[in-house]
Simulated scan of single mutants.
Amino acid sequence: MSDLGARLLAAHGRDDRPALVLLYREAADAANDENASGFYLTHAYVFALELGHPDAPTLHARLKQMGREE
């Protein structure tokens, strides 16, 4: 398992939602294809929305730029 995967699992285990926003964004940035990136960005965005996280607008803009919202 990759270090990022282990950190994601640990954050889920702790229900550390602020960390999940950052880790899923990191996973999106590291993804090798657009579908994987969109998957991870969507997760980051959902957690950000739940928290009222300040990164939510930026994540939303990235998803829109990728064509994930029509």
Rank of each mutant, 00 (worst) to 15 (best):
M66T: 01
P57N: 02
P54C: 00
G13S: 04
A36N: 02
L49P: 00
M1P: 12
A19V: 07
E34N: 05
L4Q: 10
A56Q: 12
E26P: 00
A36H: 00
D55H: 10
A61T: 08
G13N: 03
A48M: 04
D3V: 10
G5R: 06
A48D: 01
A48W: 03
R68V: 10
H43L: 11
K64T: 14
M66L: 11
A28N: 06
E70R: 01
F47C: 05
H53W: 09
H12I: 14
Q65A: 15
A31K: 02
A28H: 10
T58K: 11
A27T: 03
D3C: 01
L8S: 00
P18A: 15
D29G: 11
A44P: 00
G13P: 06
L9K: 13
S2A: 11
E50C: 06
H53G: 12
L9R: 14
G5Y: 01
A48Q: 02
D29I: 03
R7S: 08
T58H: 07
G52L: 06
L41F: 02
A10C: 01
A31C: 09
D3I: 09
E26K: 02
L49C: 10
L4E: 09
L22D: 15
G5C: 02
S2C: 04
Y24R: 04
G38R: 07
R25Q: 12
M1R: 15
T58L: 12
P18C: 14
P18S: 11
R17T: 06
V21Y: 09
L9M: 11
L8T: 01
R17V: 07
L59R: 01
H12F: 13
G5D: 13
A10V: 04
R7T: 01
R25N: 08
E26F: 00
H12L: 14
A30V: 02
D33K: 06
L63D: 02
F39Q: 10
A61E: 13
L59D: 02
L41V: 07
H43S: 09
A27P: 03
L41H: 04
R25M: 06
R62V: 08
D3K: 08
Y40L: 04
H43Y: 04
G67E: 07
Y45V: 08
Y45F: 15
Y24H: 15
Q65I: 01
T42C: 07
L41K: 03
V21G: 10
L20C: 06
A31R: 00
R68E: 15
H60K: 13
E69F: 15
A36W: 01
